[in-house]
Each structure stands twice: as structure tokens, then as C-alpha cells.
Amino acid sequence: MTGPPLVVLVGPAGVGKSTVGRLLAERLGAGYRDTDDDVAAGRGRSIPEIFAEEGEAVFRDLERRAVRRALAGHGGVLALGGGAVVDAGTRALLAAHRVVYLTMGAGEAAGRVGGGAARPLLAADPLRRWSELMEARRDLYEEVATAVVPTDGRSPGEVAAAVLGALARVAP
């Protein structure tokens, strides 16, 4: 499916963008794409390996390019990595799309981000680091969002249903 995405999911690490994105894609009869997966596949290494071997700056450049390609050519459900919104160019591109910001509180995050091994920016003291990243990025998520859907205390299916409800209220 080409064309612009039906919906773009943004939010912090652990909020469920991938899980909810796959459910949404299934319910919408569309494809699912995750830009973190695109970056990892393009480099033939995991995100933690890219961070460790090439650094965050290289990862962010790869991420910017992956987001640009996906926004231009993926007509399904698109999930962005938690830090993608840090880039002003990415935020500008997102202005033309339906973007749902999935939120969760620190209490919920404590149970979801765990050891952080798969999330390089959360490797040391995951909950403290998650809270710091949220504080730095919250306004950016809100800036790009056309809808906000809380995930606290909800199953992935309930979140997907809430996203579909939010999309029904947002002009295409």
C-alpha cells in the first residue's frame, strides 16, 4: 500500500506503539511498518548495536531518513521510534499526517520498560531515564499529535479501539 500512512503512532519507549500498531493494521486491513525496524534492517544490526558501534548521532540520521521514506511511501499504520520527534524536520513532515500520541504515566512505565537492554537510552536506571526523556519530549509529542490516547490500565486491544475512535473524530 503506497501513499501517506493511515495513521502515525508516536510516544515514548514502552508505550506499545509496535503492539498497538500491528493490531490497528490488522483491523484496518493495512500494512504495518516501524521505522526502528527499517533502520535495523538497513544496517543489518539491532538498534542497541547501532548505538554502541556508531553512536546516537548516526542512529538519529538513519532514523530521519527512514521516517522520511516511510511517510512518503507507506499507506498503512506507521510507528516511529520514541526519539524521532526530536528532529525539527521530522516534526514538520508530520504536520501533514494524522498522528496519534500514545501516552502513559511513570507508574505504568515502571512495569513496561524493565531492564532497558533493548532500549539504549534506558540502559542505566530505566525509570529515571524514561522520566527524563518524557520531560524533554512531551511537548514535542503534543506538537505533532492530532489525537492523544492514554494507554494506562488498558489492554492493547482497548488502546487500538481508542485510536480508531480518535481517528474517526479527526479529519483524514
Results as ranks from 00 to 15, higher is better:
Thr2Gly: 14
Gly3Ala: 12
Pro5Trp: 08
Pro5Tyr: 07
Val7Cys: 07
Val8Leu: 08
Ala13Met: 14
Ala13Asp: 04
Ala13Ser: 14
Ala13Tyr: 13
Gly14Ser: 03
Val15Leu: 09
Gly16His: 05
Gly16Thr: 05
Arg22Pro: 00
Leu24Thr: 00
Leu28Ile: 02
Leu28Gln: 02
Ala30Asn: 01
Tyr32Leu: 00
Tyr32Ala: 00
Arg33Pro: 00
Val39Trp: 00
Arg43Glu: 13
Gly44Val: 11
Gly44Leu: 04
Arg45Thr: 12
Ile47Asp: 00
Pro48Val: 09
Glu49Leu: 07
Glu56Met: 06
Ala57Ile: 05
Val58Ile: 12
Leu62Met: 02
Glu63Trp: 03
Glu63Thr: 09
Arg64Ala: 12
Arg65Gly: 11
Ala66Pro: 01
Ala66Ser: 12
Ala70Met: 06
Leu71Trp: 09
Ala72Val: 10
Ala72Leu: 14
Gly73Ile: 10
Gly73Asp: 15
His74Ser: 13
His74Met: 09
Val77Phe: 08
Ala79Tyr: 06
Gly81Leu: 09
Gly81Tyr: 04
Gly82Lys: 02
Ala84Val: 10
Val86Ser: 12
Asp87Gly: 08
Ala88Arg: 15
Ala88Thr: 15
Gly89Pro: 04
Gly89Asp: 14
Ala92Asp: 13
Leu93Cys: 06
Ala96Leu: 12
Ala96Arg: 15
Ala96Asp: 11
His97Met: 09
Arg98Ile: 10
Thr103Glu: 15
Ala106Thr: 15
Gly107Leu: 14
Gly111Lys: 07
Val113Gln: 07
Gly114Glu: 07
Gly114Asp: 08
Gly114Ile: 08
Gly116Pro: 05
Arg119Gln: 11
Arg119Ile: 14
Leu122Asp: 11
Leu127Gly: 12
Ser131Gln: 12
Ser131Trp: 10
Glu132Cys: 10
Leu133Gly: 08
Ala136Gly: 15
Arg137Trp: 15
Arg137Ala: 11
Arg138Pro: 06
Tyr141Lys: 07
Glu142Gln: 13
Glu143Ile: 13
Ala145Asp: 07
Thr146Ser: 14
Thr146Cys: 03
Thr146Lys: 10
Thr146Gly: 13
Ala147Gln: 07
Ala147Ser: 08
Ala147Thr: 08
Ala147Met: 09
Val149Glu: 01
Val149Trp: 03
Val149Gln: 02
Pro150Gly: 15
Thr151Asp: 03
Ser155Phe: 04
Ser155Thr: 13
Ser155Asp: 02
Pro156Asp: 02
Gly157Arg: 14
Gly157His: 13
Val159Ala: 06
Ala160Leu: 03
Ala160Glu: 01
Val163Gly: 06
Val163Gln: 03
Gly165Tyr: 06
Gly165Ser: 07
Leu167Pro: 05
Val170Gly: 02
